[in-house]
C-alpha cells in the first residue's frame, strides 16, 4: 500500500480479524458442539471451547445408531449418496456442456441459433419457479428415489455451456486447421486437442459444480422418500425436525460437520481453481 503507518496497519488487521471471527463463529460454535456429549449439550450456557467427545460422536454418528429414535439411513450411506449425487451432477454438467459448446462453436448447422436460445432459456427457469410440474415429470418418468432423478434434471447448464463456448473461441483457428491436415476428425480433435486445452477450465468448473451438487437440498428433499436415498445435507433438515422432540445437538452438529467437510476441503485445497471457477461462471 501507499503509506504504511503502524496505526493504520494495526487497525486494518484488527478489522479483518474481527471479520474473520464473525464469519467463522457459526462454524466454530457448531464444531464445538460436535466435541461434547449429549449431557453437556443440554446445559446452559453451551460451551464455546472444544470438549473431548469428538471421536465418540463421530463413531456414533457414522456407524452407530445416529440420532436415537430416527429411522433414517446410516450417515455413511448418506455421505455416499451425497458424493454420488455431487459427482453425477458435476460430470454430467461438464460433459453435456462441453459437447454442446463444441457443436455450437465448431459446426454450422440448421437451427444452430435455435439451440443457442433453448440453452439460454434454462437460465430464466430456476428449479424453484417450476417445482411442481418438474416434480411431475420426474415422477412420470419413474425417476423418483433414484440417482438419475437426483442428478439429471439439474445438469442442463447455460452458464457452463457459454463458458466453454468462450474458451473454445480463444483456441486459434489454426489449431483446427492443423488438426484437419493431420487427419483428425471432429471427435478426435475434441478429445486430443480441445479437451486438453480446456483442462484448467474444466477443473475450475468442477470445483464449483461439486459444491453446487453437494449443497443441493431442495431437490433431493422433493424427489426422495426412500430413506436409503437420503443425502447428508437433506438429513440435516430432518434432524432439525427431530430435534424438537429430542435435542441431541451433539449428534446433529457432528452430522453437520461431516456434511460440510467435503465441500470446505475442496474450496480450501483448490482455492485457486475455486476462485477461477467462481469468477468464470458466477455460480
Amino acid at each position: 500500500m501507499v503509506e504504511d503507518r503502524p496505526l493504520t496497519s494495526i487497525l486494518t488487521h484488527f478489522v479483518l480479524i474481527l471479520g474473520v471471527i464473525a464469519i467463522a463463529l457459526p462454524i466454530w460454535i457448531t464444531f464445538v458442539a460436535a466435541t461434547h456429549d449429549e449431557l453437556r449439550m443440554n446445559q446452559v450456557p453451551l460451551p464455546l471451547w472444544p470438549g473431548t467427545h469428538l471421536l465418540d460422536n463421530l463413531t456414533q454418528t457414522l456407524f452407530g445408531a445416529g440420532l436415537s429414535g430416527s429411522q433414517g439411513a446410516p450417515v455413511w450411506l448418506m455421505l455416499l449418496n451425497s458424493l454420488a449425487m455431487a459427482m453425477m451432477i458435476s460430470f454430467g454438467k461438464i460433459a453435456i456442456s462441453l459437447l454442446s459448446a463444441f457443436a455450437i462453436v465448431y459446426f454450422r448447422f440448421p437451427f444452430r441459433m435455435t439451440c443457442f436460445w433453448m440453452i439460454f432459456i434454462t437460465l430464466m427457469l430456476p428449479v424453484e419457479v417450476r417445482i411442481l410440474p418438474t416434480f411431475e415429470v420426474v415422477a412420470n418418468l419413474g425417476m423418483l428415489n433414484s440417482y438419475w432423478g437426483l442428478s439429471i434434471p439439474l445438469i442442463a447448464s447455460a452458464t457452463a455451456t457459454f463458458m466453454f463456448r468462450q474458451v473454445f473461441l480463444t483456441v486459434p483457428d489454426e489449431m483446427l486447421e492443423s488438426a484437419r491436415i493431420d487427419g483428425a476428425g471432429p471427435m478426435r480433435f475434441f478429445f486430443d486437442i480441445l479437451l486438453p486445452l480446456s483442462r484448467t477450465n474444466i477443473a475450475a468448473l468442477f470445483v464449483i459444480l461439486f459444491i453446487f451438487g453437494w449443497t443441493q437440498s431442495f431437490w433431493p428433499l422433493l424427489i426422495t422418500t426412500d430413506t436409503s436415498m437420503t443425502t447428508i445435507v437433506m438429513s440435516i433438515k430432518q434432524m432439525l425436525e427431530a430435534a424438537e422432540q429430542s435435542p441431541q445437538w451433539n449428534i446433529i452438529m457432528t452430522t453437520a460437520l461431516l456434511a460440510r467437510i467435503p465441500p470446505i476441503f475442496v474450496v480450501i485445497s483448490m482455492q485457486k481453481l475455486f476462485v477461477q471457477g467462481l469468477t468464470e461462471t458466477d455460480k
Binding site: P172, E174, M175, E177, S178, A179, I181, I193, P196, L197
Partner: peptide
C-alpha cells in the same frame, strides 16, 4: 502446411 503462428499443439 506451415502456419504463420505455427499452430503447434501447446499441450
Amino acid at each position: 502446411m506451415v502456419f504463420q503462428n505455427y499452430a503447434l499443439y501447446p499441450h
